[in-house]
Computed example of a mutant assay.
Amino acid sequence: MALIGYARVSTEDQTPLPQAEALRAAGCAEIHEEQASGGNRARPVLARVLDRIRRGDTLLVVRIDRLARSLSHLLEIIERLEAKGAFFRSLQDPIDTASPQGKFTLQVLGAAAEFERALIRERTQAGLKSARAQGRIGGNPGLRARDPAAIRKVRIARADSYVARLNETAEDWVPHVRRLRPDMAWEDVLRIVNAGLPAGRPAWTQARLLRAVNRYVSEGFLPATVLGRARRVEADDRLPALVAAIKGADPSITLQAICDRLEAMRERTPRGRSRWQPSSVRMLLERAGRLGLLP
């Protein structure tokens, strides 16, 4: 069980040193620093921290706004930590998910977020009803008139909205894509991504994942090399490569947990069975090591 610090600054002119010193004084065993906008959810350093954090660890920040700029993003990160059996604490805010008081504060925040969403829905419905009663037609007048400038604005807005939606789930798939492509085929990358999704998160399709990756490449969030042709993998080497990829994502993962992950992916054992045993995983890991597939 370790205290893991995360420090973020928005611009190159700022320094994370004061945050790092405060985190070190609080007892952090390791501190990860990142220069990125708070509104950008596709933060590679944070993604790696969340991907590697282990059961019993605590993610520590100086202030909540160093981790997230929106309540929905904060709750999403804490949900991922809880799914791993890890905790979250802020030095300057009353949130510590390892304590009853901190959990209560989190529940209040979650209720406030749901109340805000309900208010927005209610106001939207009331506005539409009022507009219909006054004979106003909904929609953009410029679009109805096929104005090129209005059409261009809508396209830009839709593109920005799509990237914003991708940012909300980037931590689920970006680390896997960055680590596994182009060494692994998209079919296997997809299965690894879906097997590690938090409960209740809809599964990705290959078309949807490819569209997201292409967009992130065009935005500069991912290198173009991830779209390269996958290297040819012999049939006998595929399972060792798959097990090595799962182990690489979480070096502390147990053999039984790898078995559970492979069964969730509906991957068959070397003998064609549906149930995996730790001994089979150990054998594949040893073979992956001989093939140079393990870090």
Rank of each mutant, 00 (worst) to 15 (best):
G138N: 07
V108R: 06
A195G: 02
L209S: 01
A126G: 06
L74T: 06
L60A: 04
D183P: 00
W204E: 07
G127N: 10
P251N: 00
K247D: 05
V233D: 02
W204L: 13
L67P: 01
A2L: 14
G248L: 12
L210P: 01
I253L: 13
R89C: 08
L222M: 11
I4D: 02
R123H: 09
I246T: 02
A288N: 02
G292D: 03
P16G: 11
D237G: 06
F88E: 03
K103H: 08
E263C: 05
T269W: 10
S279F: 14
W173R: 10
L239K: 11
G228D: 15
D250K: 12
V45K: 04
S280P: 00
R117W: 11
L119S: 06
L255Q: 11
E263M: 14
A224G: 00
R52H: 05
P148R: 04
L3W: 06
W276Y: 03
T169A: 13
A118D: 14
G38L: 08
E34R: 03
P148Y: 02
P100F: 10
A131N: 09
R152N: 05
G139A: 13
R215L: 12
A29M: 05
G289K: 11
R8E: 07
W204P: 05
L291K: 04
G138F: 09
G5V: 03
L284N: 01
L166P: 00
E33F: 09
R201V: 09
S279T: 07
R54I: 07
P94F: 11
T205E: 09
